[in-house]
Design a protein around this nucleic acid. Sequence first.
DNA 1: AGTTTCTCGTTTCAATTGCAATGAACTGCT
DNA 2: AGCAGTTCATTGCAATTGAAACGAGAAACT
Lengths: 142, 142
Amino acid sequence: MQLDSFFPYRLAVASETFSRKLTEVYQQGFGLSREEWRLLFLLSNAESLTSRELTSRGTLDKVQVTRAAQRLEDKGLISRAILDEDRRIRVYQCTPEGRALFASLLPQVEARAQAMLSAMSDEDRMALERGVSALLRAATET
Amino acid sequence: MQLDSFFPYRLAVASETFSRKLTEVYQQGFGLSREEWRLLFLLSNAESLTSRELTSRGTLDKVQVTRAAQRLEDKGLISRAILDEDRRIRVYQCTPEGRALFASLLPQVEARAQAMLSAMSDEDRMALERGVSALLRAATET
DNA sequence: AGTTTCTCGTTTCAATTGCAATGAACTGCT
DNA sequence: AGCAGTTCATTGCAATTGAAACGAGAAACT
């Protein structure tokens, strides 16, 4: 068995290199980590989200949310408040700066992704899309 | 734009969860990290490999190789020697214990992977295989 | 009301990682 | 042979991460 013909390995490498090229964009663009990027992504869509919602929607546990949110707040990209009904829970919200940054960053990230995907044939791209969707289902259920 | 319809995100999540389920096997089986697993994989195929070859073949840089090899050596799974022709370079080799462990671990890892993949239809699985191969090419070239 | 139990977010501490610096060993040039 | 530059692996240090512990707040039970 060769390592580079071992499917799990190729999947990991493919995903890592793809991901890394995208990370470069928001990393160099504003020093955002992947966790911060994900939170900003989620928050820029919604009016506001609680810590609870952030941990359930994304793939981040509560510690990661705390830390990523802390940094985003330090950078002035999101705001953090205490929920009145339950004073344990935090409510996060994008600041205008956060929304502006995300709005300028998203097209760049998408462009970078497109650049790689458009190096593939239409059939390959469709196969990838289909395969990943199926894998996502299978891996989370199994 | 929804995060969970954003392809790069779904790819990352799919790959992470898939990878994590495999990691559990050699993690619980013998406390191996992914880097250690990869090195063991490479070394169990070859008679011996130099540090130089390990860094070029795998996705690990020289620091990661040094550290993963250090741990594998501590566990008695590989041996480390100095190359005569060039005394800077290390030659790594699986010990019998290392080979035995790998031989018992690989089927388990493969079984785990198969369990997830067989939850997919044949068409989806083929699409995934094809898509990932194409992505691997595209992402490394672009 | 008071006490226990549970659910949060945050903190703490140890382990891991990434990057730059170090030192050993080789190469090429004079 | 001797020196300058290069290529290795390793190490030191700061930043990141993960897991357990913590403390505040809510819920449940008496």
